[in-house]
Design a binder for these strands. Sequence first.
DNA 1: GTCTATAGGGGGATAGAC
DNA 2: GTCTATCCCCCTATAGAC
Lengths: 226, 226
Amino acid sequence: MTVDSSHRFDELDTKEAILAAAERLFAAEGVPRASLRAITSEAGVNLAAVHYHFQSKEGLVRAVLERRWQPLSERRFELLERAERSAAGAPSAEEVVRAFVGPPLEMIQRERGGHAFARFMLGAFIDPKGEVREMLLEQLKETIDRFTDALSAALPHLPRAEIYWRFHFMVGVMAHTIALGSLVHGYSGGLCDPHDVEGVTQRMVDFVVGGFQAPSPAGAATEPGS
Amino acid sequence: MTVDSSHRFDELDTKEAILAAAERLFAAEGVPRASLRAITSEAGVNLAAVHYHFQSKEGLVRAVLERRWQPLSERRFELLERAERSAAGAPSAEEVVRAFVGPPLEMIQRERGGHAFARFMLGAFIDPKGEVREMLLEQLKETIDRFTDALSAALPHLPRAEIYWRFHFMVGVMAHTIALGSLVHGYSGGLCDPHDVEGVTQRMVDFVVGGFQAPSPAGAATEPGS
DNA sequence: GTCTATAGGGGGATAGAC
DNA sequence: GTCTATCCCCCTATAGAC
C-alpha cells in the first residue's frame, strides 16, 4: 500500500488551508497585493506547498473561484428545476429571475466578507489579462443557456435577441448589487439597508421582472443581415 | 491633437503624453501590470517625470480617471438640464434614464479601446484597497443627488428608498454593459450586436424604465390610487 | 523641468534534502 | 508531501547632476 488515509488527510488539509487563506486574502487585499508568502503564512503551511498543489499563483486563483462558482451554479439549477416541477406550464419570469439572482445574495450573506469576495470574483471577469475569465465564461455557458431558455418560455413574445440583452442587464443588476450593494446604505443617507437580504432580493426581482416585461422595440431587431 | 494654449507648452506636453500612455496601458494590461517603465517608455518621456508631475503611481491612476470622469458627469448634467428645460413639468423617467446611461456608451464608443477603459474604471471601484475609489465616490455624490431627485419627480409615487435602490440597479445595468457588453455578441451566438450604440442604449432605457415602473413592495408602498 | 543612476524592497518560482 | 534556502526577476521611488 503506497496510499493510506493519513496521507490523504494531510493533503486535503493543507490544500484546504491554502484555499481558505487565499480566499480571504484575495478578497481583502486584491489578488496582486495578496502575496503567496502572506497566504501560506496565514494558512500555516510552507510557501512551496502552493506550487506543489496549484502549480502557480494563477492556478490558485482559479481553484479558489471554481470552488465557489460550482455550488452557486448548482443552487441556481436546483431552484430553477424546482420551479419547473411545481409550475403547471412553464415557470413565470418572476420565478426564473428569483432562481438566478437569489443564490448569489444568499452566498455572500452566509460567508464573512462576502461582499469582498464578490468584488474579487467580479474582478476576475474584468481583468483584461485574466486567464481565469475563460474558465468562468465556460462554466457560465450552461447557466446562460438554461436561463435564457426558461425566460423565453416565460416570455414567448420576446425575440430571442431581446432575451439575451435583458438577461445581460439582469446579470448587471445582480453583479453590481453583490459587489457594491453596501454603498447604497451610505448614499441613501441610511435609508436603504443592504443587509436585508430578503428585501434586496425582492427589490431586484421586482426591478428585473419589470424590465423583462417592458415592451420590446417595435421595428428594431438586432439581427445582423436578415 | 494637443492643446497649445500657454507658455507651458513643454510641461503640458509631457504631462499629456504620460496621461495618454497611462490610460492606454492601464486599460490594456491592468494597473498592477502596467509599469511606470512601460508607460514612460511609450510616452517617450523619462521615468522620473511621473513622480515629478503625479507624485506616485497612485496619483497617476487618479489623474487618468479624473480626466475622463468629469466630462462624463458634465455630459449627463447637460442632457438632464436639456430635458428639464424642454419638459412642461418634470422630465419623464425615460428622459432621465437616457441622460444617465447614454453618455457612458457614447464615451466608450468614441475612444479606441473604450470597453477596456470602462473595465479599468470599474476596477477602480472594485479594488478593495482603492484609495482612488474615495475620489470617484465623492464625485459621484452630485450625480446621485441630481438624478435621484429627477427620478423622484418623475415617479412621485415611489418611496425615496425605492428610488435609491432602483438607481443602484440602473448603475449596475449601465456599468455591466459598458464593461462587459461585448460578451453578449458571443453568448447570443451573434444575435446581439454590442456595437450598435443606438440600439443598446434604447434597450437599456426600455429595460431600466420598465424596472422603475414596476410596482413597489407592498410594505412600504404608497400606491398611486390605481 | 528633465535626466541618469541607484537605492531598496518586494515578488513568484524552484532545487534538493528530508 | 513538506520544508529550507535561494535564484532572479522587475518594480516604485528618490537623490543629485544638468
